[in-house]
Amino acid sequence: MKKLSTVFVLILLLKITTVMAQDTKAKILVLIHSDNGGTYELAKEIASGIESNKNVAAVIKQVKGSSNPKLANIPVATVDELPSYDGIAFGSPVYFGNISTGMSEFLSKTVNLWTNHALEGMPATVFMSAGSGAGKELALQAFWNSLTVHGMVLISNGIRGTDNINKAIPQGNTVLGITSMASLKDVERPTKDERGLAELQGRNFARTALALKGTFSKKQTSVTISEKSQDFDDLLKQKNIILPQVPQPAGNYKPFVRSGNLVFINQVALKEGKILNPGKLGVDVNEQQVKEAAKATMLNVIAVLKEAVGGDLNKVKQCVQLTGIFNTKDDYTKHADLMNVASDLTVEVFGEKGKHARATLGASSIPVNSSVEIQAVFEVE
């Protein structure tokens, strides 16, 4: 019995030691926007340098989804997760002496973090992928300005590593952070030296982040931040949902009408200029074809809605009502099953804001021989 007690104590001590070791390990986010993969290549070297310190872990995420095969599998970060890290290394292409549009849009969504002082005292470092190299210092300084407003502790790259770089070719080294001059011909970018400098920057940053761990408060913000900061364009890409062009009216009416904060939309199953699966259920088309038509119709509704809110689906507050009208025979009763496709798509796109009141009914015919028509009401900002 005494031996069993001793074994139990040893196991308990081992678990406690493991938990304490995990708690002392710093976690750093390498947050990037990358167009052609140059910034991502630097990010991998930064992360490698960070993880050369056994007490620090690095995770690479991007601010928005990308169709570039090199970047397709990199997870997308949310604004509200930023305070959970012990440090953040920011990477971006240089856009005309400034940070990239993608990174700028992401940072513009951090207002709630700023008002809650959620990033104050957290260490940050920056790196960039430049074109010709012109404007790289201006861009790095612009990055620093944005992070300074948050009260982050900015860690420069200093002059480390300059003794060993090849000075026969232009290199992207700066004291503010490593860059890579991506557009120069006949030289692989990032160069071997630029990669080495990025690795050194990661090492230096990891050491500082580990030293500062626990010295600043990780203030968690409301979960509503993630909902407000959701980039619907990225969400649609991730879910492989492609919105069609807004169908043009076939008569003297508008695709939508806004009255106060309500938007009213009616659409049929138009796809690429033609009615998808036209006709009457049970005569010309089957249930599966009508469900496909219902999905196409709802995509048209969302495309019109996006136009109604000026391209920003973040302004949608609630799907209030959907009404599905189906071209069916008199004895058909499973209208709700057909409409579930449209309802499920709405919730998939808008989450809780997509849950709605609903009506479904049959009709002896529908304009332009569509098998379905959907009427929608949305509340918007």
Results as ranks from 00 to 15, higher is better:
Asn204Tyr: 06
Gly196Glu: 09
Ser229Val: 02
Ala206Gly: 13
Ile242Leu: 15
Leu236Met: 10
Ala206Pro: 10
Lys237Tyr: 11
Leu197Pro: 01
Val223Lys: 09
Asn204Pro: 00
Asn240Gly: 09
Asn252Lys: 14
Phe205Arg: 04
Leu212Asn: 06
Asn204Ser: 14
Gly251Phe: 09
Arg207Ile: 13
Phe216Leu: 04
Pro244Leu: 14
Lys219Val: 12
Gln201Asp: 14
Ala198Asn: 10
Lys219Cys: 00
Leu243Glu: 15
Leu212Trp: 06
Leu210Phe: 08
Gly202Glu: 07
Gln238Asp: 07
Gln245Ile: 01
Ile241Glu: 12
Ala206Glu: 10
Ala198Met: 09
Glu199Ala: 06
Ala250Leu: 15
Ser229Ile: 00
Leu243Ile: 14
Gln248Thr: 14
Gly196Ser: 11
Asp234Met: 02
Leu243Cys: 15
Gln220Leu: 10
Lys237Phe: 12
Gly251Ile: 06
Thr215Val: 04
Pro249Cys: 13
Phe205Tyr: 06
Pro249Ser: 13
Gly214Gln: 02
Ser229Cys: 03
Ile225Asn: 03
Val223Ile: 05
Ser217His: 05
Gln238Ala: 12
Thr208Leu: 09
Gln201Ile: 08
Ala211Val: 02
Lys237Ser: 12
Glu199Met: 08
Val246Gln: 05
Thr208Ser: 08
Val246Gly: 01
Glu227Phe: 02
Val246Met: 11
Leu200Asn: 04
Ser229Leu: 00
Val246Ile: 10
Lys228Gly: 05
Phe216Gln: 02
Lys218Phe: 02
Asn252Pro: 00
Pro244Phe: 11
Ala206Leu: 13
Glu199Leu: 09
Pro247Cys: 08
Phe205Asp: 04
Lys237Leu: 13
Pro247Lys: 07
